[in-house]
Write a protein that binds this DNA or RNA. Structure first.
Lengths: 126, 126
DNA sequence: CCCTCCACCTAGAATGTCAAGGTGTCTCCG
DNA sequence: CGGAGACACCTTGACATTCTAGGTGGAGGG
């Protein structure tokens, strides 16, 4: 299958795409599902949109992640037609997924805070 | 070699150690070296201290990372005695390492900002 | 002299992401 | 009606990074 994609698709992804930090995808997905069930394609677009096109999730990352989350019991899904009348799986948070989301986002906060402390030594004076 | 370590060593690392986000270690090392040359052991302690014991770098992660950074020309080292009169390698930033640090920390900022936007939908109302 | 801490290192497993490819269906447009 | 393109699902294999679990040798204290 040809590599060439429609020209306007390339616009934002083009300029040096930033790889996702390994370990953050689960958090992003859980958080995105917090507002209600979504299918895979919609999750990607949500994340892209809300991150202002900084976070671009590949399908090859997304689906393994979704299946991982299912295996761990943090999300479930049910089939149903999409807004465009296509077959789709709507993924939704389970109760334990909500707990996990809290844990993960706590971890993220601590982590990001710690890195921020290291990155900003300038203002260390009281 | 026995697994048992001195009891007080376990205190902070014990309670659910958080894995480093993959890809952040280079940034942390570069930033830590920004203030001057340090040897490996000191880098670990710097990071631990300044992160308030949130970020704990394993030696098995540190040394591969240091060698990686050397290969890429971002740091160099010279041998010399440590404060404790032991053989040590003092790693220091190169010019291109400084540039890389700027790049990496820019990437981090964008990334962390994007994730923060996703994590905080609550205050989306103007 | 033995033990511990320091300071260096490596090999192998585990993990997660990405690049690249593949299926089928729906809709629009010529 | 036929093709193009978006939508929505998926998998495989390569890759990079971190962690676990070891290993060396020397300094200093008891």
């Amino acid at each position: 299958m040809l590599r060439c994609m429609s020209p306007r698709m390339a616009t934002r992804a083009e300029k040096e795409r930033i790889a996702l930090l390994q370990g953050t995808l689960d958090l992003l997905i859980l958080q995105t599902l917090r507002r209600g069930p979504l299918h895979g394609h919609a999750i990607v677009k949500e994340i892209e949109q809300r991150s202002e096109a900084v976070l671009l999730v590949e399908q090859g990352s997304l689906y393994p992640a979704l299946h991982r989350l299912i295996r761990r019991g943090w999300i479930g899904f049910e089939e149903g037609p999409s807004e465009n009348n296509r077959r789709a799986k709507y993924y939704r948070l389970t109760a334990s997924g909500k707990k996990q989301l809290a844990i993960e986002s706590g971890k993220w906060e601590r982590m990001a805070g710690a890195i921020a402390r290291i990155l900003r030594p300038a203002e260390e004076k009281a």
